[in-house]
Design a protein around this nucleic acid. Structure first.
Lengths: 342, 342
DNA sequence: GGACTTGATGGTAGCGCTACCATTTTTCCT
DNA sequence: AGGAAAAATGGTAGCGCTACCATCAAGTCC
């Protein structure tokens, strides 16, 4: 009678096949694969040979079920197309590509409710770690994160009350630095233009406000915002609105580089001299800002590095040595360029 | 004696808890959840009530193990930061957000080897479907896809030999259309500028070549390419190279919009008149192209729609009614703008 | 009215792996 | 050398779910 070769499991080799071929117990194969140090050199070699020969690949689902822990990083970002999060994601993927961990990505669309829903989906999978964008989770989300039973890293921002760990920088300081730079460069009627006013944008606006107040330059009519998703074309429109509202505008701090680019193009189109008539500062410092004509001053943010660091911290926490520093501020850098060189 | 409440499983409710509470067998709960039609109304209601009360969420790992089929879509893209793939991903995520399917994303970094490696990781998870970018898989990858035992959708391009299904458009035709437009607009010394010459870029180049040959305008010195990853700054540099090599250049077809933007900025910087002295055509039609000054002619590609359609086709195949049309050409559209309006 | 579908429900036996504990072997003391 | 501790290995029993088959009640047909 032929061995019944499992009706269901497609016939891929299992750990038992490897164990049989290597002449050891299944549990020893399991150990050799997960923690080679705990198996003698000889058996390890035999097992590795058997694995190669059979082309054995462990079933992640069975692993997750048996160990009540999946080798998965859950990652929640508000947008997939926003270059900022794409860069963070790239850092995360690059850091994890040589590890056994997979990534489960969720797009919250900037919605707290959607974030809750996704967290509710992710939690039952018992991920190895969770990385979430932002620090403004709803109470429900926060509870879900706290009870996730795995390392949690909040990214993009820093704050005083991490669920677990944090990597980012201060958007408030970024907004302030950008605005102060414009003031120092001699601009006075400095507008703020922002789309998609998520919490980080709000804090950049607060930084702008702080700098303007301090210099005694603030005027509410200088602020132009919209909840609409950010884009270059929107930047152009908002700038026209701002100018209509306040024709004496002589500078703008743009909530991000897309907006800044829209402003720059509109200046070209309307023959407004940059930086003489209008100074422009962006946020994030996309590659194109240094190439633009005139090149655009921007706040360079460590997006890729945030992704890498978040993974490094999570990995450290998983292996037991939680970083002493739970909140890591990676800072930012003001890149002075032609658009504010008056 | 207290019920031992499983040492390992963290104490979340299981299907057995729901079954007990609803006074039915576990298998009936399973059915009520997966295929409500097969359970009587009365039991279904009781079960739903029990699920709500206990906050039961099925364990996807146990499901996958027992059914030898995970509710996961495997998605392979060559880049996370390239706006093109970000849009495709957005389409995929949006289409799947209300389904029980999760997404497992892999970044191949434009490498066939990396693609093979990722496919080898994805396959053991028995995904419900696989979506891969491009049609130029290595023989090994192709075999892995054929043997995956699930619907496979190749996206971004069309071709005559799908592994299973395909959604995209013809990059060759796109390149030809762009080039023909420049020729019709009166440009003659038309260059091709391309970075990251992946297979799709190669085919756009082939389209350019075809149009130029047909018009008797081709000259190898008109082509400037590099394997380096595309960026706006690279576009600027390549354009300078192209101009140095061929000072009589009067038009450029750029392999993508980033390059086109770099060219545009360099023209500003060098006071080269666009469209009079140089005509520019991009590829993909990012939002910013219509805002740029002058606005830039580009080939609009249905990126988001490709993602949506790929999911729709995969879903149809999963539920049994495989689309009659295995290769779907979503086409593209030439957007005529100021940069070629001579 | 009896044999025969059909539909709803349940029991049993795994899916492939690892936690837990037991056992055996080796190493290291004094 | 004797004993204890440490290291290496294995057996058993699930993890939570679903495939498969069995059961039973309610039609359906002539």
């Amino acid at each position: 009678m032929i061995k019944p070769r499992s009706r269901r499991g497609g016939g891929r080799p299992t750990i038992a096949d490897v164990a049989r071929k290597a002449g050891v117990g299944a549990i020893t194969v399991s150990r050799a694969l997960r923690d080679p140090g705990r198996v003698s050199d000889e058996l390890r070699r035999q097992i590795e040979a058997a694995v190669d020969e059979l082309g054995y690949v462990p079933d992640p689902n069975a692993r997750a079920l048996a160990s009540a822990r999946a080798e998965v990083f859950g990652v929640l970002v508000p947008s997939l197309t926003n270059n900022v999060f794409a860069e963070v994601l790239r850092g995360i993927y690059d850091s994890l590509s040589d590890s056994p961990f997979r990534i489960q990505l969720g797009n919250t669309h900037y919605s707290g409710l959607e974030e809750e829903r996704l967290l509710q989906v992710f939690a039952p999978q018992r991920p190895a770690a969770l990385i979430v964008a932002g620090i403004d989770q709803t109470p429900t989300s926060r509870k879900l994160l706290e009870n996730a039973g795995c390392p949690v890293v909040q990214v993009m921002e820093t704050g005083s009350d991490p669920v677990d760990m944090m990597v980012g920088f201060s958007h408030l300081d970024g907004g302030r630095t950008a605005t102060e730079h414009l003031i120092e460069a001699g601009y006075r009627r400095i507008g703020f233009i922002g789309a998609r006013m998520d919490p980080r944008s709000q804090r950049r606006l607060a930084g702008y406000r702080a700098a303007m107040d301090k210099a005694g330059l603030f005027d509410p009519r200088l602020v132009t915002t919209t909840p609409v998703l950010s884009s270059v074309s929107l930047g152009r429109e908002l700038f026209r609105d701002a100018l209509a509202k306040m024709p004496t505008l002589d500078g703008v701090f743009c909530n991000n580089d897309d907006i800044a680019l829209g402003v720059l193009f509109e200046c070209h189109r309307a023959s407004i001299d940059v930086p003489k008539t209008i100074g422009i500062v962006g946020f994030n410092d996309l590659d194109m800002m240094q190439v633009a004509f005139p090149s655009v001053t921007s706040i360079r943010t460590p997006r890729y590095e945030i992704g890498r660091r978040a993974v490094a911290m999570a990995l450290a926490a998983i292996t037991g040595d939680r970083p002493e520093q739970r909140v890591v501020d990676l800072g930012f850098e003001l890149k002075r360029r032609e658009s504010t060189a008056r």
